[in-house]
């Protein structure tokens, strides 16, 4: 067995090294007899192939010309030499960061409606779709005093375990409200297992300028379906007033009030 192994191993290695310069001939020579051997001997193609492997040994290959035999020991540098004159592909990560492909499957994000309400309704379809069982969701019940998302239900607990996640994106396909999308952020490393379980506070999209931090009531007169249709383009003055009554120190109030004053939503219903 040991001898056979010895005989076998160097052959493919060297073969690969020489492979490129000699491409048109070698594979054809190698493959055709193998196929016939395979079909003729049926169950034991490996046995039949063994002597032929030895035939490919560089030193004993008599089919090559004299020049080829002379350069054979350094033929492996052919790839190296040709690559020397191609443009460099090395990326200086992390010093220079390059943008990923636009649809790169990176870290997840839980989006918000333009008025700041969360899109996630806690339906758990993402958890259902997840082949790696990486997502854990607990739903909550919206109340008149604590409306986090349009409609009756919101995601109270939302966790993604990035030690389990395989970034397949099935959760994104499952999400009925486009709440869950993937960002281009791929820098997901941590020192603890607990730290790799991302919670709602990390996954939830930040309040952008013009958004009003949840919880607050929905735009008056619009249903959750109107939100999904995109009828809401920003907070209304009623919503801003509601929040300023209850949370006067809320940081999002100022820009939300300005957005509401521009009158994006509510007049066109």
């Amino acid at each position: 067995m040991a001898e056979q192994g010895k005989g076998k191993k160097p052959a493919p290695g060297k073969g690969r090294g020489q492979g490129r310069p000699a491409q048109p001939k070698r594979p054809a020579a190698g493959r055709t007899p193998a196929r016939t051997a395979g079909t003729s001997t049926g169950k034991a193609p490996a046995k039949a192939a063994r002597p032929r492997v030895e035939k490919f040994d560089v030193d004993s290959d008599v089919s090559k010309s004299g020049l080829a035999q002379f350069f054979a020991p350094v033929a492996g540098f052919g790839v190296t030499m040709s690559t020397l004159f191609r443009p460099v592909v090395t990326e200086q990560y992390p010093f220079e960061k390059k943008p990923t492909a636009p649809r790169y499957h990176g870290r997840h994000q839980l989006n918000r409606h333009p008025d700041g309400l969360e899109r996630c309704i806690g339906c758990e379809l993402c958890a259902w779709a997840c082949p790696a069982d990486a997502i854990y969701v607990e739903a909550g019940n919206n109340t008149p005093e604590a409306q986090y998302s349009p409609g009756e239900r919101y995601g109270k607990v939302y966790q993604i375990n990035y030690l389990r996640c395989i970034f397949c994106g099935l959760c994104i396909e499952a999400c009925p409200t486009r709440a869950l999308t993937m960002t281009n952020d791929f820098e997901l490393a941590g020192t603890t297992r607990e730290g790799m379980i991302f919670d709602k506070d990390t996954l939830l999209a930040p309040i952008r300028s013009g958004m009003l931090a949840a919880p607050h009531p929905m735009v008056a007169g619009l249903s959750d379906a109107d939100y999904y249709r995109g009828d809401v383009t920003g907070p209304t003055t009623e919503q801003v007033a509601w929040v300023s009554d209850r949370r006067p120190d809320d940081e999002s109030l100022e820009s939300a009030a300005a957005a509401a004053a521009r009158g994006a939503t509510g007049d066109g219903k």
């Binding site: 919206n142 109340t143 008149p144 409306q147 349009p150 409609g151 009756e152 619009l222 959750d224």
Partner: peptide
């Protein structure tokens, strides 16, 4: 009369 612990699709109690 309205309750204070559930809401409907319009966010109404």
């Amino acid at each position: 009369q309205r309750t204070d612990d559930v809401v409907g699709p319009y966010g109404q109690a």
